[in-house]
Simulated assay, not measured.
Amino acid sequence: MSATGVEKTEASATREDLRREQDLKELLLWFQQNEKLPKEIDPLLLRRFYQCMYGDLAETQKLIEVNYALRNRHPHLFIQRDPLDADSRNTFDYADILPLPGLTPDKAKVSLYCFRDFDASKMHHTEDTRAFFMVSDCRFVTPDDSANPELLSEGEVQIFDMKGTTMRHISRLTISTLRAYIKFLQLAFPVRLRAIHMVNCPTYLDRIVSVVKPFISDEVFKLIRFHTVSLDTLYEFVPRAMLPEEYGGGAGSLETLRTQTQKSLVKHRDYLMDPNHWVVEKTEKRNGNSWRFFK
Rank of each mutant, 00 (worst) to 15 (best):
residue 3 A to Y: 10
residue 10 E to N: 15
residue 10 E to S: 13
residue 13 A to R: 12
residue 14 T to H: 15
residue 15 R to A: 15
residue 16 E to M: 10
residue 16 E to Q: 10
residue 16 E to K: 12
residue 21 E to K: 13
residue 24 L to F: 10
residue 25 K to A: 00
residue 37 L to P: 04
residue 38 P to C: 02
residue 39 K to I: 02
residue 41 I to T: 08
residue 42 D to Y: 01
residue 47 R to D: 13
residue 48 R to K: 09
residue 49 F to E: 06
residue 49 F to T: 01
residue 54 Y to A: 13
residue 54 Y to K: 15
residue 56 D to I: 02
residue 59 E to G: 12
residue 59 E to Q: 15
residue 59 E to T: 15
residue 61 Q to I: 03
residue 61 Q to R: 12
residue 62 K to V: 08
residue 65 E to L: 06
residue 65 E to T: 00
residue 66 V to P: 03
residue 67 N to M: 06
residue 67 N to V: 06
residue 69 A to N: 06
residue 71 R to M: 03
residue 72 N to Q: 06
residue 73 R to K: 14
residue 76 H to Q: 07
residue 79 I to V: 02
residue 80 Q to M: 10
residue 81 R to K: 05
residue 81 R to D: 00
residue 84 L to C: 10
residue 87 D to T: 02
residue 88 S to Y: 08
residue 90 N to M: 07
residue 93 D to Q: 01
residue 94 Y to E: 01
residue 97 I to K: 00
residue 97 I to M: 02
residue 99 P to T: 05
residue 102 G to V: 07
residue 102 G to W: 03
residue 106 D to T: 04
residue 109 K to A: 09
residue 110 V to S: 10
residue 111 S to Q: 13
residue 113 Y to T: 10
residue 114 C to P: 09
residue 114 C to S: 11
residue 117 D to V: 05
residue 118 F to W: 12
residue 122 K to L: 05
residue 124 H to P: 11
residue 126 T to Y: 04
residue 129 T to H: 00
residue 135 V to C: 09
residue 135 V to S: 09
residue 136 S to Y: 13
residue 137 D to W: 02
residue 138 C to T: 01
residue 139 R to L: 12
residue 139 R to Y: 14
residue 141 V to E: 09
residue 141 V to F: 11
residue 146 S to T: 03
residue 152 L to I: 11
residue 158 Q to G: 11
residue 161 D to T: 03
residue 164 G to I: 02
residue 165 T to Y: 14
residue 166 T to P: 03
residue 166 T to F: 05
residue 167 M to Q: 07
residue 168 R to D: 14
residue 169 H to N: 00
residue 170 I to P: 00
residue 171 S to G: 03
residue 174 T to E: 13
residue 175 I to T: 15
residue 178 L to T: 04
residue 178 L to V: 08
residue 184 F to Q: 03
residue 185 L to E: 08
residue 185 L to A: 12
residue 188 A to V: 04
residue 191 V to C: 13
residue 192 R to F: 09
residue 193 L to Y: 06
residue 193 L to A: 03
residue 202 P to F: 05
residue 213 K to V: 07
residue 214 P to H: 08
residue 217 S to C: 05
residue 218 D to K: 08
residue 218 D to P: 00
residue 219 E to C: 09
residue 225 R to I: 06
residue 226 F to G: 01
residue 227 H to E: 00
residue 228 T to D: 06
residue 229 V to R: 14
residue 232 D to R: 03
residue 232 D to K: 06
residue 234 L to M: 04
residue 235 Y to A: 01
residue 238 V to I: 00
residue 245 E to R: 07
residue 248 G to F: 08
residue 249 G to T: 04
residue 252 G to F: 07
residue 252 G to C: 09
residue 254 L to H: 09
residue 260 Q to M: 12
residue 265 L to H: 10
residue 268 H to Q: 02
residue 270 D to Y: 09
residue 272 L to S: 02
residue 272 L to E: 03
residue 272 L to P: 04
residue 273 M to R: 11
residue 273 M to N: 11
residue 274 D to M: 03
residue 276 N to M: 15
residue 277 H to A: 10
residue 278 W to I: 03
residue 281 E to T: 13
residue 281 E to A: 14
residue 281 E to V: 13
residue 281 E to K: 15
residue 285 K to N: 11
residue 293 F to V: 13
residue 293 F to S: 13
